[in-house]
């Protein structure tokens, strides 16, 4: 009886390990970014940017697959050309506490999609919407805003900063417990 119970517990635990993260390689709606309005003013009521119609912030920001895809695209699309692996160069740093246009996923998504004054180009038609969300999620992980269990681990090549999953947690950074 006791042996049977122990076996049952072990089997249940082992089966629990079968659960794995979903890899969402296809956008849920094939029409996303094209339908979204372009803001015509920088003034936003209440200082809060309206949320995009197809908001994927919640489902992308703690998803290891999307974060690592974002990291790959960050390199492929030469974001480092201006932002230098997040440290900043011609463009602002992405791994510090100062965010000119807000550090939320929605703000970063809007920055990549529509561009910002003084240099940030718009990638509205150049990058599919899901890939913009992936980039936004990765950019947030640069500053320690992603769970370390999901953030990308070390690079295969030159390491310019600690890997994203070893960044100090932004929520507790600089504060004593």
């Amino acid at each position: 009886m006791r042996l049977g119970l122990a076996t049952l517990v072990c089997v249940t635990l082992a089966l629990g390990a079968c659960q794995r993260e979903e890899r969402d390689t296809r956008p849920q709606s094939s029409l996303g970014s094209g339908e979204q309005p372009t803001p015509v003013t920088t003034l936003e009521p209440g200082g809060q940017r309206p949320s995009p119609s197809d908001n994927k912030a919640a489902s992308f920001e703690a998803n290891a697959f999307h974060l690592s895809e974002g990291k790959r695209l960050f390199g492929w699309f030469n974001c480092s050309g201006c932002h230098a692996n997040g440290g900043g160069g011609m463009g602002p740093a992405l791994m510090d506490e100062k965010w000119i246009y807000g550090s939320s996923m929605e703000s970063i998504h809007a920055t990549i999609r529509d561009g910002r004054p003084n240099g940030m180009p718009s990638f509205r038609e150049k990058i599919p919407d899901d890939q913009i969300w992936e980039l936004a999620a990765f950019v947030r992980s640069l500053g320690g805003n992603a769970p370390s269990s999901a953030a990308p681990s070390r690079n295969d090549d030159m390491m310019t900063h600690p890997s994203e999953n070893r960044m100090p947690d932004a929520a507790t950074l600089g504060k004593s417990p």
Binding site: R23, T25, R26, S30, P128, Q131
Partner: peptide, 16 residues
């Protein structure tokens, strides 16, 4: 039109 149904997981995204 839909690379992700022909080669799921490939790096060619679905483009609108």
């Amino acid at each position: 039109a839909d690379p992700q149904s022909i080669k799921p997981g490939s790096h060619m995204p679905v483009v609108e």
